[in-house]
């Protein structure tokens, strides 16, 4: 798997895929996409990067331990659910705000943060699994 072409293109491919995954994540509420799909795309991006350039460089690139990312995601999902509690709404009630930014309406909402949490959990867990297996393999 250590082909030169793959090793040369992998960083760019990975960056593109991660960018794409974030795009898929954010459009998910209105078009096909969402946290699960986006997370899987980003995780496979890291897996490809790991196969091409070795696990150590992926870990370097991710900066945080994958499971730390997953844990942060889980916490983000829980916190976005807790936000409705001070407003005396049930846990996980969706809250929306539409602040005008740069002339356009931007929908900010707790479901969006929840979806970002899902994304982070999937990215973290799946890439942790894939990287661990790749490490075994090397």
């Amino acid at each position: 798997m250590r082909s030169v072409i793959l090793r040369a293109t992998a960083p760019y491919l990975t960056a593109l895929m991660v960018l794409f995954s974030i795009f898929v994540l954010l459009r998910g509420h209105n078009e096909p996409g969402g946290g699960f799909i986006g997370g899987l795309i980003a995780a496979s991006a890291f897996a490809i990067y790991g196969i091409a350039c070795g696990v150590a460089s992926v870990r370097q690139a991710m900066h945080f331990h994958p499971l730390a990312i997953a844990g942060a995601g889980l916490m983000l999902a829980v916190l976005s659910g807790c936000l409705s509690i001070p407003l005396e709404r049930p846990f996980l009630t969706g809250l929306w705000a539409f602040p005008a930014v740069l002339g356009g309406d931007v929908g900010l909402s707790t479901p969006m943060f929840f979806d970002i949490g899902v994304y982070l959990v999937v990215v973290g867990s799946i890439s942790a699994i894939a990287l661990a297996l790749e490490e075994e393999d090397s």
């Binding site: 509420h29 209105n30 078009e31 096909p32 996409g33 969402g34 929840f114 979806d115």
Partner: peptide, 11 residues
């Protein structure tokens, strides 16, 4: 406020 019904159900 979501047009993708599947995603709205999930999140």
């Amino acid at each position: 406020h979501g047009r993708n019904i599947v995603n709205v159900i999930i999140v």
